[in-house]
């Protein structure tokens, strides 16, 4: 009796494990099979296999020159504003030269260049450490356009990507982001985020799919050039050919796709 009860419990346990695995198997197997409808790139979508950006820092003299770009970005994407520095969310922001490029330390650099505001954002690296770190593929390098994308529906908020990013480009929603937004000023076309997920610049992938340039590029009056790094005839490649540019912490091998003309 003793042993048969025990065997029953064991079998029941194994069965329970098997049953609990079923939804997982289903979820993996349930690829969309409906052949009658499809999803594709829109007719207006801009196509590029590795988007990249060149920022001409010579065109930004003071804070007032960069503020409209930051505002355009944060307005477009409903980036909340919190006065508590710990809860801050930043997609695009300005900083000093020695903060943007801490590895290019030069005590006697051009005063004019030193005092310019430098725009920093996610570099959409070709070899992104954050993507390597993410345990759920919630952040990933999109094959179709090279953008380092965040899947907000999948992020578990472990913040490993924030530790992995050498550029401090990622922010975490420490609280409900809607508390840092004014309802009337929100962009209803773009979602907000929920508390407990990581976010960052998305190279305006939602605008690219509608044939629009990123919000900051549009607001920069030509000071930022955006285009396909793989296309030798693109505007970005032309600007890179004609100007000397630097990238943030290029020694780390992350291959940033944001270039700076200094």
């Amino acid at each position: 009796m003793e042993s048969s009860r025990r065997r029953f419990m064991k079998m029941a346990g194994i069965a329970a494990v098997g049953l609990s695995a079923q939804p997982v198997i289903k979820a993996v197997a349930a690829a969309p099979t409906n052949g009658t409808h499809s999803l594709q790139k829109g007719p207006k979508a801009l196509i590029g296999s590795q988007w990249a950006m060149v920022i001409d820092t010579r065109r930004f003299k003071t804070e007032r020159d960069v503020a409209p770009l930051i505002e355009a970005c944060h307005k477009t994407h409903n980036v909340p504003h919190f006065s508590d520095r710990r809860h801050e969310i930043k997609w695009l922001w300005e900083t000093h030269f020695h903060n943007a490029f801490p590895d290019i330390v030069n005590p006697h650099m051009s005063e004019e260049a030193e005092h310019r505001p430098y725009l920093v954002l996610c570099n959409h690296c070709e070899n992104p450490p954050c993507v390597r770190a993410c345990p759920t593929k919630a952040t990933f390098k999109r094959q179709s356009d090279g953008i380092v994308v965040m899947d907000m529906h999948r992020c578990i908020g472990c913040r490993f990507c924030m530790a992995a990013c050498p550029y401090g480009a990622r922010s975490f929603n420490f609280r409900d982001p809607r508390q840092g937004l004014v309802e009337k000023e929100m962009n209803p076309q773009y979602p907000t985020r929920m508390k407990g997920v990581v976010e960052k610049c998305n190279f305006c992938s939602e605008r690219l799919s509608e044939g629009l340039m990123p919000a900051c590029v549009e607001a920069s009056k030509g000071a930022i050039v955006f285009g396909d790094l793989r296309d030798p005839n693109s505007e970005v490649r032309r600007v890179l050919r004609e100007n000397f540019t630097i990238r943030r912490k290029s020694g780390l091998g992350t291959e940033p796709c944001v270039y700076y003309i200094v």
Partner: peptide, 21 residues
């Protein structure tokens, strides 16, 4: 399916069986 394809593959245009986008 929309959110998966839009976010992960960048295919944000839906074409239904009648061909409407």
């Amino acid at each position: 399916e929309w959110r998966l394809k839009m976010v992960r593959e960048g295919t944000g245009t839906f074409v239904n069986p009648e061909g409407k986008m």
